[in-house]
Amino acid sequence: MSISRIAQGSSALTSAALLLWSGGAHAEYALNMPRGVTTISHDVYDLHMQIFWICVIIGMVVFGVMFWSIYHHRKSRGAVPAQFHESTVIEVLWTLIPMLILIAMAVPATKTLIRMYDTRDADLTIKVTGYQWRWQYDYLDEGVKFFSTLATPQSQIRNATAKGEHYLLEVDNPLVVPVGKKIRILTTAADVIHSWWVPELGWKKDAVPGFINEAWTEIQKPGVYRGQCAELCGRDHGFMPIVVKAVPEAEFQQWLAQMKAQNATPTASDSNPRTMQSNTDSPTVVGGQTL
């Protein structure tokens, strides 16, 4: 821990407000929701910004009035208290006006939500299964199925070696998907509830054991997009990242063929994932055991 890190941290705070106004500041530390790489994520981002600005404006008006009053109507400036204490007209007004604002917010929100629920006519269906603590991806029509596990070495987590660029957000086998195709994603889990979330795709969906949920995405830009499990799922909840690699269709087909060839040679049975280390078995030293 160097002093410069602390200084950097505190300067980050002071510049935070400024950067927020400047919009999608893409510094080392992100401040805002990513705009994402799908039409849905763009809609969600726009919705988020709209509501945010409405809140900022309301906040400025309300707090402005309050601080103006705090400055002017103070006893030390000789203010004499008025005695008014009710007005039905005003009460009705400040009930109705917020209602109208809310309706204005609800319209775009409803539209976006309806689009998010439209899983029709997908080109590809991928089943995502949450395990304690890794993900399994199953390309249903292709018979390709594999686990995706955290690739960050323990030595980095335990601070023995320097942390890599994608610390905790790297996996051995990323989910490879084609760009420009509508992909339907089914989520479920094999033990406890997990939640599959890649911020750049604009949504997360819970993975519930015994039940199946669906969502969809259509990635427009090739790239690598990273996310994490978003529902507390036990000891290593923080260590089951998601990496989505979006590639052009041709490259995807090539990758798929390669995976199928690999699958032809028998690998470890997928029905029996690595021995689960039950939480109850691992003794926890109270008072802080250093890893």
Binding site: R5, I6, Q8, G9, S10, A12, L13, A16, L20, E28, Y29, A30, L31, N32, M33, P34, I157, K163, E165, H166, Y167, L168, L169, W197, P199, R226, G227, Q228, C229, A230, L232, H237, G238, F239
Partner: peptide
């Protein structure tokens, strides 16, 4: 608590004991 808004928007899940490097500054603050 204010920086935690940024952390969440930038993609940091809650209830995790360790996090990716882009969240380091605001967590420290």
């Amino acid at each position: 608590f204010f920086p935690q808004h940024f952390l969440g928007l930038a993609g940091m899940p809650r209830r995790i004991p360790d996090y990716a490097l882009q969240f380091a500054e605001f967590n420290m603050v």
